[in-house]
Amino acid sequence: MSDLVLLLVTGLGLGALYFIAASGLSLIYGLMGVLNFAHGVFMTAGAYASWLTMGALPVEWPVAVRLVVGVLVAVAVGAVVGLVVEVVLIRPLYRHHIQQVLVTVGLSLAGVAAAQGIWGADPRPVEKPGWMSGTTVVLGARLPNDRFVYVLVAVALFAGLLALLHLTRLGLVIRAGVENRTMVEALGINVHRTFTIVFALGGAAAGLAGVLYSQYAGSVSPAQGSSLLIFAFIVVVIGGTGSLAGTAVAAVVVGLVQQLANYYAASGVGDLSVVLLLALVLLLRPTSLKGATA
């Protein structure tokens, strides 16, 4: 029983990280049709920005306070990077989807290499607030506290994005654009400005995901973002593109499947079962991806 509770909570925590990483990706892909390979670099940028910030702040400050500042910096860095990438690299290739993908591929290779050149390929340890390293006993299970943080942040992000999508003018344009961006333009709405904002939003979410993932892993490393990115891709495909609720459900399912399989089968099987899940979803429900062709 306590094992199961532990697995469910850790799986939920992992799913929360996947959701934070995938939400921006799903929005960008749904609205613009851009498969953003650079999303991993955005995450890495956020992780390093937070790590550098925490290192630069006075050591007397509590770790938790420095982490909060680090998160804020990471979100800002992610947003700025996303904004710049969209304006400088993506926008000139509007409607050339393949080339947009290629540019983000180049960016992801160059970004990881740059981080490797500056900070080295080896993981650098990050400071973790004492409480987040501790555990809380619930129903006999010793649950790592940091998972609660990830879940809380993910729920807040989910609620915030839902509010944005359904209560604001920007959200209305995004929802319409996910359905048919050409028609949004044909109604006289400058959809490019929306693209830029969504890319910046996605970058901010990626920055956040990067910091939290580095907390989860206990370290920062150049390739960290790329490994998280692959699971984010899987979540986006399973969840159906452009659907925030679908992304959330898929993220939780993927996180749970991974944890449960790792425990009940063997360590490492979890990652494989996720890919197997993807294959199953594709075989049983290929139409869920209708919007994804093109």
Partner: peptide, 19 residues
């Protein structure tokens, strides 16, 4: 993988390679 097209095909093939 060919059950999806375009860019989703790219993601799915990537996932298999990752496995």
């Amino acid at each position: 993988a060919l059950r999806v097209g375009g860019i989703a095909f790219a993601m799915v093939t990537l996932a298999f390679a990752q496995a």
